[in-house]
Design a protein around this nucleic acid. Structure first.
Length: 111
DNA sequence: AAGATGACGTGCT
DNA sequence: GAGCACGCCATCT
């Protein structure tokens, strides 16, 4: 499995209603310290894969797109559909809605 | 070939 | 908290 494949794999494991920072995704995919690689992989991943990219946010619990961009709006939209609370204005996720279970789950994968 | 870029993170002021 | 400087490294100019 290639690094980008592992990244997509991990992202696909994020349950609806939860989010995970880029850095954590990188760690779980076996690429510690390479959060940027995650953003790249998601950007280059074909839409046909239906990857829940919107569940990946930055370590500050915020969306990493420019507030004016339509990508930002799209991510907010998708997160709301997931039931995730996003504050307008300060634009941030309510809290880190990620459970340790995800980590242990991912750790037991056939990488 | 060399420099800039980026859906990031951490540490410091 | 808000900036800033770095570290990171595949991709683009």
């Amino acid at each position: 499995m290639s690094p980008s494949e592992r990244i997509c794999y991990v992202v696909c494991l994020i349950p609806k209603g939860k989010v995970l920072p880029y850095g954590k995704v990188a760690d779980l995919a076996g690429l510690p310290g390479r959060a940027r690689y995650v953003s790249r992989a998601l950007r280059l991943s074909p839409p046909s894969q239906q990857i829940p990219w919107h569940r990946v946010i930055n370590s500050q619990g915020k969306i990493s797109f420019d507030t004016n961009s339509n990508q930002y709006r799209e991510q907010v939209e998708l997160l709301r559909l997931d039931g995730v609370i996003v504050n307008t204005g300060k634009i941030s996720i309510s809290k880190f809605q990620w459970q340790p279970d995800i980590a242990t789950l991912v750790m037991s994968l056939p990488f």
